[in-house]
Simulated scan of single mutants.
Amino acid sequence: MQLIRAIVFIFLVMFGALAMAQPNAPGQPIGKVLFSTGDAYADQIKLQAGSPIYIGQTLSTGNVGHLHIRMIDGAFLSLRPTSSAKVALYTVDLDDPANTKIRIDVQHGVVRSVTGKGGEENHSAFRLNTPVAAIGIRGTDFIVYTDAISSVVDLRQGVSQ
């Protein structure tokens, strides 16, 4: 029984690494909702656990909405109540990290980001933009609070650019 578990584990690790190593194809999901409560939307479509996330979508939460997303490279994105962010770019290529391009545009609210393999392999490829600042990250876990006139970054772990 332990041998079967070990084989299944190795298969899952190898398959997962292979899937993450390939660049994401246009039109394919670049993330999946892990948790959603209250009002949470992608382009005004109600989200729930398991919903796919695509490049170009604007994610938003209402007054009591929360949204947790796992991206294709293992990154984590969380929106707190009354927040809005657009996934402008999300191309991850671990075979050639120079092709990785990640940009998330936060319009307002509170967003937490934990860098995935794409940002770890190519630090300059990750940008989180707010109305008043652009944040470059190096393997970090951070929270940004933003509105039309100010942005505050709470760096939980890692290095900011």
Rank of each mutant, 00 (worst) to 15 (best):
L79G: 03
A88N: 10
S51K: 08
L47M: 09
Q44G: 00
K101D: 13
D73Q: 04
D95Y: 08
K101R: 15
Y54A: 00
L89T: 09
Q57L: 03
S84N: 07
R70H: 04
I102W: 01
A42K: 02
G109T: 12
A88F: 00
G118A: 07
K46V: 03
I102N: 02
N122S: 15
K117M: 12
S124C: 05
A125L: 11
T58S: 12
F76E: 08
N63H: 09
S83K: 11
F126R: 13
A125R: 07
Q107D: 13
V87N: 02
H68C: 01
G119H: 05
A75R: 06
L77C: 05
L67T: 06
N122C: 13
L89I: 03
D93V: 04
T82N: 15
L47T: 04
T115A: 12
H108I: 10
S124K: 15
S84G: 09
V106M: 12
A85G: 03
F126W: 10
P97S: 08
N99G: 04
A75Y: 02
V111T: 14
R70Q: 12
L94E: 08
D93Q: 06
H108Q: 15
N99R: 15
I45K: 12
G65H: 08
K101E: 11
I55E: 13
G109F: 10
S83Q: 05
R70P: 00
I102E: 02
Q48G: 06
D43V: 02
G62E: 08
Q57A: 00
V92R: 01
S113M: 13
F76H: 11
H66S: 11
L89V: 04
G56A: 08
S124F: 12
A88D: 11
T100K: 06
L94I: 09
L47H: 04
Q48N: 09
T115W: 00
I45V: 11
G50L: 08
Y90P: 01
F126G: 02
G74A: 04
Y90S: 01
K86H: 04
L77D: 02
G56H: 09
Q44S: 06
S124L: 14
H108R: 15
V114R: 07
A88K: 13
G116V: 05
E120M: 11
R103V: 06
R80A: 14
K117V: 00
S124G: 12
A49V: 06
P52M: 06
M71K: 03
K46E: 08
I53V: 13
A88H: 07
T91C: 03
I69C: 01
H123I: 13
T91V: 12
A98K: 15
R103I: 03
I53L: 08
G118P: 08
F76A: 07
M71I: 01
T91E: 07
G116Y: 05
T61A: 05
K46L: 05
T58E: 13
H68L: 09
M71R: 05
T100M: 04
A98T: 15
R70D: 04
G65D: 05
P81A: 06
L79K: 08
T82A: 10
V114A: 04
I69W: 03
A125K: 11
I72S: 06
A42F: 00
T61I: 09
Q48A: 11
K46A: 10
G62S: 06
D96T: 15
T91I: 10
N122W: 11
L79H: 02
L77I: 14
G118W: 03
D95F: 09
I69S: 00
F76G: 01
L94N: 09
E121Q: 14
N122I: 10
H108C: 04
R80E: 14
